[in-house]
Design a binder for these strands. Structure first.
Length: 157
DNA sequence: GCCAACGTTGGC
DNA sequence: GCCAACGTTGGC
């Protein structure tokens, strides 16, 4: 069963344009250091799942494109890399603490959908992103929410 | 830059 | 197990 997700990225560190410029428009979604998000990456997110690519800490914050999961959860190598800013010396290679997935860019939205627009859209009232205090960098999106966001973005009907 | 909300750490 | 202190996220 195909599921849908929203992934946040600060364009100052890795933007939608950076994803498009990546080899095969694919990147490893690594550096996630939150246990709830880790559980999703490790246990639930599957190859073929759809991703809304969201620019956080942006002006305006907005969903800007879609992506596809091309590789399901595997140990995030940055946790074992002493030179990485994501290095975690307490993670045991025999039982890795952090996981990553690979994603490939799908379509740019014809119109990015700003956070404010999401908030104004009735069918999205229960979106995780809109919950007060929500900070999950990887979060579930329902099929209905996915459809609505794509429509707002001018793709997918 | 501010600050609310949340997660993690560590003393006890 | 409690909770204060601290660090991070992310909108504004």
């Amino acid at each position: 069963m195909t599921r849908y997700w929203l992934m946040k990225s600060e364009p100052g560190s890795f933007s939608w344009e950076d994803l498009l410029a990546s080899p095969r428009k694919t990147t490893r979604w690594d550096g996630v250091r939150n246990y709830q998000a880790r559980n999703l990456l490790r246990d639930t997110i599957a190859k073929g799942d759809g991703v809304l690519f969201y620019h956080s800490n942006a002006n305006p914050p907005a969903v800007v494109g879609t992506a596809t999961v091309t590789r399901a959860g595997y140990p995030d190598p940055t946790q074992f890399d002493a030179r990485s800013r994501y290095h975690d010396p307490r993670s045991d290679p025999e039982a890795p603490r952090w996981f990553a997935v690979d994603i490939r860019a799908g379509h740019a939205l014809r119109r990015p959908v700003p956070l404010a627009t999401l908030r104004e859209t009735a069918g999205l009232a229960k979106m995780e992103l809109l919950r007060k205090g929500s900070r999950l960098s990887v979060q579930p999106v329902t099929a209905a929410e996915w459809k609505i966001v794509l429509k707002l973005g001018g793709i997918g009907g």
